[in-house]
Simulated scan of single mutants.
Amino acid sequence: MPFILNRKIFFILLCLTSLLSDPVFLSGPVFGRPARLTDMSVTNSQDHILVYLNVRDAFTEKIQKIIISGVPTTFSFFITLDEIRTIWINKTLSEVTLTHTIKYNTLKNVFTIQRSWKDEKPLTVRTLEEARKIMTEIDAFKIIPISQLDKGSRYRVRAKAKLSKMTLPFYLHYILIMASKWEFETDWHTIDFDY
């Protein structure tokens, strides 16, 4: 039995090493178009300040290969809301990290996506296109109740996104050193508004 298990581990290591040494994986954002935030907007409902945003160019060919291979992948979104003050340093009113985690089930041929900020069961979709849209979009995130804002004050919302982790079995964690070549992190995107 140990011999068979060792052969399985060897085969998995060989496949992952081959996959991660592929020239597509070794070309980082420097050689391709870097991921970036787009379509960011800040608006309000009757009770909350809402943030909308999208990430473009996050689903590169190399990231798609990792996802299709069944490795759970997490995108993190960092969003802050500061009150802009002229004399004192800005005051942070809200600072959140939202996560979207995707896992492809090769047997059922479906993608399962869990969003940390949605109080619902994981979403299941059949196409990579649907999964990509859900993974790269924040729609109507309630960053703060309007009642916590002061009339006549100025505020700043900042956001960025990052491919935060790839979850591998424990005995394969050393491969993360190679996987760091395909991670991305966007620049901060900022919107100022008056209330």
Rank of each mutant, 00 (worst) to 15 (best):
I175H: 12
F193G: 10
K142R: 10
I175C: 14
I63M: 04
T186D: 06
P72R: 02
N105A: 08
T97P: 02
I177F: 08
Y155T: 06
E61K: 12
M40T: 05
K65P: 00
V51F: 00
R85D: 11
G32V: 10
L128K: 09
Q148D: 08
I191H: 03
E137K: 13
F77N: 03
I9P: 02
A179P: 06
G152P: 06
R154G: 00
H173Q: 14
Y195N: 13
Y52T: 09
R154A: 03
T124Y: 07
L50M: 10
V110N: 09
R33M: 11
F25T: 06
D22F: 12
V55M: 06
G152L: 04
S76H: 05
G32W: 14
I89A: 15
K118L: 15
T38K: 10
D192K: 04
A35D: 04
V157P: 00
T106I: 09
H48E: 13
S180K: 15
P2I: 14
I143P: 00
Y174R: 02
L168F: 13
E83I: 14
F193H: 07
I63N: 02
D139T: 01
Q64H: 10
T86D: 15
E130T: 07
P29G: 14
A58H: 02
Q114K: 06
T74A: 04
G70H: 08
E183C: 07
H100E: 09
E129K: 15
L98M: 03
T99S: 11
P72F: 03
S69L: 00
H173S: 14
L128H: 08
V24T: 15
A140K: 15
K118A: 12
K162A: 09
S27V: 14
T60V: 12
I66F: 01
I143M: 01
Q148M: 07
D119Q: 08
E185C: 05
T97D: 09
I63C: 01
K108H: 05
T17Q: 13
V55C: 08
T127F: 08
D82P: 02
T124E: 11
Y155S: 02
L168A: 11
S116P: 03
P145G: 02
V96T: 15
R56S: 15
K103A: 07
V71A: 02
K121V: 06
L168E: 14
F59E: 04
V125I: 10
D57W: 04
N54W: 10
G28D: 15
T106W: 05
I143G: 00
W117V: 02
L168K: 04
T106V: 10
P72T: 05
E130P: 05
I143S: 01
S180G: 13
F10L: 06
P169L: 06
I134Q: 04
Y104N: 02
I102D: 05
T73Y: 09
T106G: 03
R158N: 05
K181C: 14
I67H: 09
R85E: 15
I113C: 03
D57F: 07
T124I: 08
P2L: 15
I12P: 00
V157L: 03
R115T: 03
V42W: 00
K165W: 01
S18W: 10
N90H: 08
T97F: 01
